[in-house]
């Protein structure tokens, strides 16, 4: 899509905004509608648009597939290990009180943020992986042929 100049410019402008919005949704998850799942999808949209407009190869330069794989695992581990931490602290699995036993409410907040971050990372990575998986199949025709 090298010749779609407008698209390329607009995309460049939009990607930052999309990412910012994703982060907003991510970190307001504990107060308002939103959270890791939605944020992860939005975040992945940024990468997907980039690869649609610029090219899969460029996108994979930014976010190599092996890295995405690791991200999936990291997100999941973040979630799970938060729970494990509370177990070590002597609470039930995923009992966020453990994060700040003096002040359970703040513990709950922090716990949810951690969890949601894990979810967000994983969802982003999974969405991007699915896109990569479909997109990296041999293209039926190249851009110039449109």
């Amino acid at each position: 899509m090298r010749h779609h100049l407008i698209l390329r410019v607009v995309t460049k402008l939009l990607i930052g905004v999309i990412m910012l919005f994703a982060l907003y949704v991510q970190f307001h998850g504990d107060y308002s509608p939103g959270g890791g799942f939605q944020a992860g999808v939005i975040m992945s949209v940024a990468f997907i648009i980039y690869s649609v407009v610029f090219s899969l190869a460029d996108a994979q330069k930014v976010l190599p597939p092996w890295f995405v794989h690791k991200l999936m695992a990291v997100g999941l581990l973040l979630y799970a290990l938060t729970g494990v931490y509370s177990m070590f602290a002597g609470y039930n699995y995923l009992d966020y009180d453990a994060i700040n036993p003096e002040h359970p409410v703040s513990g709950q907040h922090n716990g949810i943020i951690l969890i949601e971050l894990g979810v967000g990372i994983t969802v982003t990575a999974v969405m991007v992986t699915i896109f990569y998986a479909f997109a990296s199949r041999t293209p039926p025709m190249d851009d110039e042929a449109w």
């Binding site: 690791k70 999936m72 695992a73 990291v74 999941l76 799970a80 290990l81």
Partner: peptide, 8 residues
Amino acid sequence: VAAPLIVL
């Protein structure tokens, strides 16, 4: 936990 650990 072991499952993502393998991936990581």
